[in-house]
Amino acid sequence: MRQFIFRRTCYSIVTLFILSLTIFAVVRLTGDPALLMTEPGARPEDLARVRALWGLDRPWPIQYAHFLLNILTGDLGTSFNYRMPVSELYFERLPNSLQLALSATLLSFLIGVPAGLLSAVRVNGAWDNIGKVVALTGLAVPGFWLGLVLILVFSVWLAWLPTGGKGDWRNLIMPSIALGWYFAASLLRLTRSSMLEVMRSEYIKLARLKGLPGYVVIAMHGFKNALVPVLTLAGVNLVVMVNAAVIVEVIFAWPGIGRLLYEGIFQRDFPLVQGVVILAGCMIVLVNLFIDILYAYIDPRIRLTK
């Protein structure tokens, strides 16, 4: 176990290192970082100051060392627009994004998992066919367009729900649906396939041979095992939703990280964009690490296969 954690942690560090290298290289390959790191129309002395601060006049390896050191000490630059450190802005928005992502995850769980389960238990039955249609449309309907249509129907025509902003639970409904829609469909697919695989296993056969009631076989022996990959996906997806719900947050004026990124693009606030990307990457890598270790505890098979 200890060996697994060690190996997995090293792996994550390498991933983070390559991630930082990628961002560093891409920025320098596509233009002058000093221009990006200063406000549009900056004076020459400002440019010089930024160059000195980030060591942009030195050779690339030293520049990279600078860059890495700044990240490691938590200095991701200052947003032009907010005049605040990017990391502060990020963590200020994090709770909002987390709230939306949790709500979307919950919603997609409530739809995707039972539907996937029903599909798997009655393969090729009516539920399975409905499930297939839902899965297919879920993957084909862009979440942001769904958001727009929801606003049109429930805010403009029916005037039931507010169009956006942060407020009470009613503000959460539409963004959660728009954000969770795609994920509900993928949960459905995964639950179904995972459940089908589990139900073919020898231990399910043994559970039936024991003469257990059908619901015990399905709900306890089957579902509990089928849930392992489903929960893994949910964990990974939650952290992606927190960081990448750009369009849904923009459409519903939700003050989260995605919207922060959008503001960064819109106002040509490069330090903000770069900072959010770096932080999002770090967070995802770390949460993945955490989930892997957690599941290695729950399910010993993971430890053995990786």
Binding site: E202, Y203, L206, D299
Partner: peptide, 11 residues
């Protein structure tokens, strides 16, 4: 059943 590895529920 045949396979002792597979016929017990791992969880």
């Amino acid at each position: 059943l045949q396979d002792p590895m597979a016929s017990l529920n791992p969880l």
